[in-house]
Every structure is written in C-alpha cells, then in structure tokens.
Design a protein around this nucleic acid. Structure first.
Lengths: 139, 139
DNA sequence: AGCGCATTTGCAATCGCTTTGCTTTTACGC
DNA sequence: GCGTAAAAGCAAAGCGATTGCAAATGCGCT
C-alpha cells in the first residue's frame, strides 16, 4: 500500500489535472497520503505536517477528496483518507479496524458470494467494507 | 424491525439478565429503541424521552450496548443504536449501513476467501463485517 | 516580467456530538 | 429496613469537524 515517493511534477500534474491549484500545501498533503502506511486521519496528518495550519490541512484533504484524488471514509467518528489507486477500475479494498487500539489497516480485496437477498449496492460491490476485530498486536 | 411493545417484565428481565440494574431509565431507553422504526441516535432519544437527562440517556445507551442488548453503529459521525434480535442465530452476520439515510439492515452471512496476508482475527472469522453504501430506497 | 484576480492560507473561533466529574438518589441483596 | 454500590441529575469539558475574515499566493494574460 505504501507507494514510491511521487515527484513534485507528478503531484502538480495530478492536482492541476483535477482542476485545483497546485499549492505547496496540497502537494505535501497529497504526497504524504500517497506514501502513508495506511489510511491517515486529519489529526495525524496535521501533526505530521508541522508547518501547515490544521484548518489548511483539513481544507486540503477535503478539496483533494472532493476532486477525486483521495478517498474519504468514516471510521468511528474520524474521517480517514487514502490515495486512490491510479490503476483502472480501482476496486475498493476492505479495511480492518482494531476494536482495541483503533488501528486501521488495508486488507486485500476479497471475493465474496452474494445471495439474492442483498441491497443492489452490495450485489454491485459498490460498497465500502469494514471488518472489525482485535488486531494481531492486541491479541 | 419495529417490534411489539415489550412488557415491563420483559424489559426488566432482559436488563437484569445482562447483569445491569433494571432502572426506570434503562427500561424506558431499551423499550424505546426496541419499538423504534429504525436505528435511533442519542440526540433523537434524548429529545423523545423528555423526562431524562441527556447524560443519563447517553450512559444508558452505552451501558445497554456494552451489555449486549443494543448494537451501536457509526453513521456520519453520529452513533446510532438498535436493539439486538432476541432470535437465536449467528450474531456475527454482516450489516449494511446506508451512507445516505443511516438505515442499517442485516445481511446474510457471506463466505469470503481469505488470503494469507490478513490479521489472524480475519483469518479466523472473529470479526464483525460492515458494508457501507447507498441503500435501495436512496438510490 | 508584471499585473490582477480568484483562490488559498493562517489565525481565531465556533459547532455539534460525545463524554466526564461530582453529589445526590436509588436498586437490590441481605 | 439497612447498607452499599450503582445510577441519575447538573454542570461542564472534550474532541473532531467546520467556518469567518483578512492576508498571501497561484496562474492566466499581456
């Protein structure tokens, strides 16, 4: 899931390609999310990027997510963000949430059998899947 | 999902069976959630139960959820609660949460394939699975 | 390269849901 | 009925999310 460090030109192109201004803050936010170990929260990112104001980090996360460069999802009342894969037909992978420590990690995409008694979104796999349990560190 | 009005004895037995004191507040909270049309939030419940302090409603919801009588869901940063079914069956079936209206529905247990790169809890199926998307009513 | 303007940032603050501290009240075992 | 631990009420605090406004800045155009 961690990816190679994108170049400044990569970041600038992606951001401007999404119709946004390629500001320093946005490039740093996007680059940090891309290279992160897993989904990052606003607070984690604001702390890691000491040189930017929290409100700026928040706005940049939201702008990038609205523009389609980041995926935003909700885990226990906290927004988390991760970079969208550049691969075509990016499948939404599940996430595992530790009920003890709150750690969130990405899981590989899993196939699952669908019966006919499920909502259409589930049948079409247009869903985000969260699995909750106790992680290996807390067991 | 809405259920017949439980009797006071039903409520008292359920609460005490879960190891809690069967206070008036808890019986009213549990009874209201059981008969609700769908998952209810703390704020909705506190408003509906005018005679109880908001903090008390909160604590009772949490106590009942911790005791296993209610299930708690996170929908758009708001906790929602619903009564657990008293029917025997696999308690660990997945749930589908609508990201628009917050409606939660039970899904049939699905088999899924597990690769070797997952936490032990996932491999052992000791997880709760939650799927999020737009329900059929909101599509 | 400079200008102008719309957009972004930093600072400060607010918002809404959640949670807690402390004293008084109460459920319930004996 | 008594005693005690748990629960309730009141007041307050906490936390993540979000916003207002003035200053700074990206970028198209000349």
């Amino acid at each position: 899931m961690p990816r190679p460090e994108p170049t400044d030109d990569d970041l600038r192109a992606a951001i401007r390609g999404a119709g946004l201004r390629a500001t320093r803050g946005r490039m740093v936010v996007l680059g940090t999310v891309i290279t992160a170990d897993g989904p990052v929260s606003h607070a984690e990112l604001a702390e890691a990027l000491g040189g930017f104001d929290r409100a700026t980090v928040y706005r940049n996360l939201m702008d990038l997510a609205d523009a389609g460069l980041l995926r935003r999802f909700d885990v226990d009342h906290v927004w988390r963000f991760e970079a969208l894969s550049l691969e075509p037909g990016d499948p939404r992978h599940p996430h595992f949430v530790c009920t003890d420590c709150g750690q969130v990690e990405c899981l590989p995409v899993m196939g699952f059998e669908v019966s006919e008694r499920v909502p259409a979104a589930v049948a079409a796999r247009q869903i985000d899947v969260q699995m909750r349990g106790v992680c290996d560190d807390c067991r």
